[in-house]
Simulated assay, not measured.
Amino acid sequence: MTRLALQNAVADYGEGRVLGPLSLALAPGERVALVGRSGAGKSTLLSVMYDQWRDRGAALMPQELGLVPTLSVFHNVYMGRLDRHPWWRNLLTLMRPRRRDVEEISALLERLGIDDKRWAPSGELSGGQRQRVAAARVIHQGGGLLLADEPVSALDGPLSEVILTALTEAYPTVVLAMHDVELALHYCTRVIGIRDGSIAVDEPSQRLSAHDLLTLY
């Protein structure tokens, strides 16, 4: 992946400006945390990034997850690669999954601690379980850049670490919108603090502490 940049990016909601103008650049291999209070503009910034970079291999894990409730966990994860297969193979997989796909996805679900729900409809799962399914889907999708909006907000400490480790190992370059600044500092190499739609902090993680970021909240 080559260097990615936003230049004077803005976003409006109705007649109001909710983001920017702001500029930033991502270097290949960076793991970036977007932190700040709810409504500061983190999700909007991720959406702008995805709109700009989706044709350059960006994958998105949205906060609303986007799972299909009536489909099984397996099929929701399989959907991460729908565009890589012809329509007829996807249709056949809906009715009779191929062994190779089942084995690959089962291994991923096992790593995330949810393989026992492989054939359960995603609509029957808890919030934390659905979040793990969405994480599995975006890992299965793959690509050069992951944009994830609060990927572990419904998970406890140990599971949060399992998911964040899996996500950051699956993609060479990562941008995570997060509320937990301790996790942000641990898993990311750079922290961008958003306040009122603007960049208030942009520093390497090693130069920051959780206390340094309290002014954003």
Rank of each mutant, 00 (worst) to 15 (best):
E110S: 15
L67Y: 07
V77M: 09
R132F: 07
S122P: 12
G144D: 04
G123N: 05
R100N: 11
M95L: 15
W88A: 08
L94A: 14
A148D: 01
L146W: 10
F74L: 07
R130F: 07
P69E: 06
G143H: 00
L82S: 07
S122L: 03
V77P: 12
G127C: 03
W88L: 11
V138E: 09
V102F: 15
S106F: 07
R99K: 15
R84H: 12
G113E: 08
W119V: 00
V102N: 06
L71P: 14
E104S: 05
E124N: 13
R118Y: 00
V73G: 13
P86N: 04
P69T: 01
A120V: 13
V138N: 06
W88Y: 15
P69H: 10
L92H: 08
L155Q: 09
I139E: 00
L65R: 11
H75A: 10
I105M: 01
I114K: 15
G144W: 09
M79V: 00
G143M: 05
I105K: 10
R111C: 03
G123C: 02
A148K: 07
Y78M: 09
G144N: 03
R100A: 14
A120G: 02
A107N: 06
D116S: 12
M95P: 05
A135V: 00
E124Y: 08
V152L: 05
G113L: 01
R137L: 06
E103A: 13
L65D: 02
S106W: 11
E64H: 15
S106L: 10
L112H: 04
L155V: 10
G80H: 07
V102T: 06
Y78R: 05
P69R: 04
I114N: 11
E110V: 10
H75Q: 14
R96D: 13
L92F: 11
V138C: 07
L92Q: 11
L112R: 04
D156P: 15
E64Y: 12
V68H: 12
S126N: 06
S153H: 08
V77G: 09
Q131K: 06
S106V: 04
G123M: 01
L82M: 10
N90M: 12
D83Y: 08
A107W: 09
R98M: 06
G143R: 07
H85L: 15
L92I: 03
S153T: 05
N76H: 12
V133T: 02
L82R: 12
V73I: 02
R89H: 09
Y78I: 01
V152Q: 03
A154D: 13
L155P: 15
R118C: 03
D116G: 10
I114A: 06
L145N: 00
V102D: 03
G113Q: 08
M95D: 02
G80R: 02
L147G: 03
L67Q: 11
K117M: 13
L109Y: 04
S126L: 01
